[in-house]
Amino acid sequence: MKKMIKVLIVDDSAFMRKLITDILSNEENIEVIGTARNGEDCLTKLKTLKPDVITMDVEMPVMNGLDALKEVMALYKLPVIMLSSTTKEGASNTILAMQYGAVDFITKPSGAISLDLHKVKDEIVTKVLQSSKANITNLVKPLQTQKMSYNRRVFNSKNELDARSKVLQKPLVCIGTSTGGPRALQHVLTRLPNQFPAPILIVQHMPAGFTKSLAKRLDSICHIEVKEAENGELLKNGVAYIAPGGYHLKLKEIGTSVAIQIDESEIRNGHRPSVDVMFESVSHLSSFRKIAVIMTGMGSDGAKGLVELKKSGNTTAITESEQTSVVYGMPKVAAETNLVDEVADVDKIADVILKYIGM
């Protein structure tokens, strides 16, 4: 007999609570054990209820979802899925929720009261199921939220930087991640020093409207520049380019430069952007030494692309360890290819990247 996953639904709308309850109650191994109308009510209910997963609306009166999330993580350490609108403020709050420890989020199709919530029915069910298995330990660890100071030697002149880059055959870092990814990216990118001598490409599974907020958040706390990738821009060292939600990130050589291509070609592995698509595009570049990193996430995206990268030669592969992955899916499947060079805890991945870069 399958273990029942017990869910607490938190939303200020009675209508939304009913819709979410109906969606989840139709699943044979999910049981809705209670509902709450705001964050304060949620904390009261948690004194007696013991859910396996909480779905939490972001915008609520009395106590909003962000404040409630912080309390839930501090007191109960439970997996929380945030439900958010696609407004600019909603996207920004969702990125904050990932920082505070939410496992994942779901975008409401049409605002706070979404009559068409059935459009994301499968996503709600899937994320509740996978969140019940998430590694919460890493979500309650404090994150670096300010720029770090470094003892590492940093390049002080353009000539020195250029000379070093030639020795290293123009390194390129490409990172793929999904569930738990925003926190993992924060762990890694905040530990990279300024004048980092390589471009960084990032695919984080996220819908349109959220990747720009993620990039802005990371840019504010990193020494390197972090931005949402734009079609046609040339790769620059020390810049991390995040694929826009809803678009694949590819590369195209233009003379001695490399330009980013953003397109809406076929969805791969259920995702656009897809890590496989990015890796496969990078594999066609012969003039770069590639460092491929696969971190926390459900599914297998990135593994096939890693195979293509390794076939092209001059590729070092790094995966996040099972111990720190919020969901040990993508790194596990990548490791099963037997092509991974190094496995590291998330807070050590930046050091491993720097080692292979030569810093």
Rank of each mutant, 00 (worst) to 15 (best):
V203W: 14
N237W: 05
R164Y: 14
Y241W: 05
L189A: 07
R153F: 12
R268S: 05
A259P: 06
S213N: 09
V173K: 05
E225W: 02
E230I: 01
K250N: 10
Q169I: 01
V258S: 12
V239A: 11
N151I: 13
I254C: 12
S149L: 10
S178K: 05
L168T: 00
L189E: 01
H271V: 12
L201F: 09
V203K: 14
I260S: 04
G180A: 05
I262A: 00
K166Y: 06
V226I: 04
L168Q: 02
K216D: 12
T256W: 03
I260D: 00
V258M: 09
A215I: 06
I242P: 07
K252T: 15
V226H: 06
N194F: 07
I221P: 12
K252C: 13
N156I: 06
C222W: 12
I200N: 10
R164H: 12
T190E: 03
L251W: 10
T211W: 06
G245Q: 04
P244A: 07
I202T: 03
K212T: 04
Q186F: 07
I175K: 07
T177D: 00
M148R: 13
H248K: 03
F155K: 07
P244V: 04
I200W: 12
S257D: 13
G270T: 04
Y241L: 00
P197H: 03
G246M: 08
A229W: 05
P197A: 01
L201M: 06
S220F: 01
I221T: 09
K147A: 00
L172D: 03
K147V: 09
Q146W: 02
E233Y: 05
P197I: 02
P207I: 00
H223R: 12
T190S: 05
K166G: 00
H205E: 01
E160V: 00
E160G: 11
C222G: 14
A240H: 09
R217C: 08
I221H: 09
A215M: 02
H248R: 11
Q169A: 05
E264C: 14
S165C: 08
P199F: 04
A208T: 13
S265E: 09
V173N: 07
C174H: 10
N159E: 15
S257C: 08
P171R: 00
K170S: 09
A215T: 03
Y241A: 06
H271P: 14
Q146F: 09
N194Q: 12
R164F: 14
I175D: 03
A163N: 15
Y241I: 09
L161M: 12
G176C: 11
F155T: 15
M148Q: 14
R191G: 06
N269Y: 15
V203S: 01
G246Y: 07
L168W: 00
S220A: 13
Q146I: 14
P182N: 14
R272N: 10
L192D: 12
L249A: 00
G270C: 03
V226C: 10
F196N: 05
D263S: 14
L185Y: 08
I267S: 09
I262D: 08
E266L: 04
R164I: 00
I202K: 01
I221K: 06
T179W: 14
G238P: 08
K147Y: 10
F210W: 08
T179C: 13
N194K: 12
K166R: 15
E233L: 02
C222T: 15
G176R: 07
R153A: 08
P171F: 01
L192F: 09
S274L: 02
M206I: 03
A259Y: 05
